[in-house]
Design a protein around this nucleic acid. Sequence first.
DNA 1: ATGTGTGCAAAAAATTTGCATGTCC
DNA 2: GGACATGCAAATTTTTTGCACACAT
Lengths: 201, 201
Amino acid sequence: MRVELPERPRAEVDRLEHAVATHGGEVVGPQNRGVGRDHATTQYGYDSHKSSSLTTGEYHRSVASDTLAQVLRERGLRLTAQRQLVLEAVYDLGHATPDQVHCKVAETAAGVNISTVYRTLELLEDIGLVTHTHLSHGAPTYHAAAEEQHVHLVCRGCGRVDEVQPSVLDGVSDQLARERGFTVDVGHVSFFGECRDCAGG
Amino acid sequence: MRVELPERPRAEVDRLEHAVATHGGEVVGPQNRGVGRDHATTQYGYDSHKSSSLTTGEYHRSVASDTLAQVLRERGLRLTAQRQLVLEAVYDLGHATPDQVHCKVAETAAGVNISTVYRTLELLEDIGLVTHTHLSHGAPTYHAAAEEQHVHLVCRGCGRVDEVQPSVLDGVSDQLARERGFTVDVGHVSFFGECRDCAGG
DNA sequence: ATGTGTGCAAAAAATTTGCATGTCC
DNA sequence: GGACATGCAAATTTTTTGCACACAT
C-alpha cells in the first residue's frame, strides 16, 4: 500500500519550499534517495492526493506555516517537511489520533515514520500549536490550539464532533469561578451526548 | 512484592461471603490453593491492608454489592469475588486507570490478573455500574456511574479532581438542546482548568 | 560544518485473546 | 452438571527509545 517515491508531487512540495523559504533543492525525500531498496523497507515516497479547495484547513495551514517557522526559529529548532505535514494534518483532520495523523501525512509523504509523528505531535504541543484531549474512547486526539477556542460536542451515537462557541459556557464558568475559585479552560471542554440525528432514531 | 496467600483476611472475606450469600466455603482463592508454587508464578493471595472507616467508599460499596449481585443475576451472569473487588476499587479510588484498579485490588487479593480487571471493567461498564472517561492525560479512568451525577473539575496544576452538581449545566444544556438539538450527557462532563489553590501560586 | 531530526528496529507499555482449568448457580 | 470466569501466556496494538545517517541552518 505504500508508494515508492516515484516522483515528487509538485503542488505540495512547492508550498513546502515556499514556506521554508530556502534554497531550491529537494525539500523532502531524505535518506536513501537514489537507492532502489537496499534493505527491503520502503523509503520516502509521495502520492498525489490532497484536494486543494479553500477550506478552513487551507487558511489555517498558511497561517500555521508562518507561525511554525517563526516559533521554531525562536527556539533554535528546525523547520522540516515532516513537521509541516503533521501540523497540516492536525489542522485538516480537526481531531485525530496519532495514528490518523500518520495516515493523513502518509497520503502526501508515505515515508514519514510513525515515531516521527509522535515526536512531532509532542513538539507541536510543547510549542503550543496543538493540544490533545481525550474525546470519547481510546486514544488521545490532537487538534489545533486554535486562537478561537471552541467547545466540543461529541455524539456517542455517530461519533461526530461538532463545535460551538465557548460563550455558551460564560454562565457556568462565572459561577464556578465565584463559587469554587475554579478557572475553567474553555478551550478544552467536551460535552458528550447525543446529536439531533442520532436522537431521532 | 506479591503476597503468597498465607492466610485469608477475615474482614474482607466475610463481607464478600455475605454479599455473595452463598455456601460457607472459600469465596476467593481459586486455583492451586494447596499447591506451594508449582510453576514459579504467584497464585491467589491476600493481604491485610484496607482500613475500614465509614467513608463514602464504604457506603457505595455496600449499596454496590447489592446492586451488583442483582444486576448480574438479572443478566444470568455470576457474582465473583473478583468482580466485587474491582467494583469496590473503582468506588474507593474515585478515578482510576485499569492499572491503578488492578493495584488496588491486588492489595486485597494479590492473585487477580490484570486481564480479569480489564474484562471486569468492561463488564461493569456494560452493566452500567461504572463509566470511563479520559481525564487530562494518558489512560482512561474509570469511576462509579453514580446515581447522582456530577461534573468533574480537573485541575491542570495539581491534578486534583473535584466535583460539582450537574445543575450548573442546566443553562448550557438547555441552550444546546434548543439551538443544536444536542442532548448533553451531564454525567460525563469534565472541565479542565486551574483550581483556587493553584491559581494562588 | 555541525548539531538536530528522521527513519528504522527493537524495547517497553498497554490491551486483547485463546485455552485449560476451576468454580458459581 | 454445565456454563461461565479466571489465570496464564501469547498475540496485538500503542508508544517510546537508541542509533546511524542525512539534512536544515
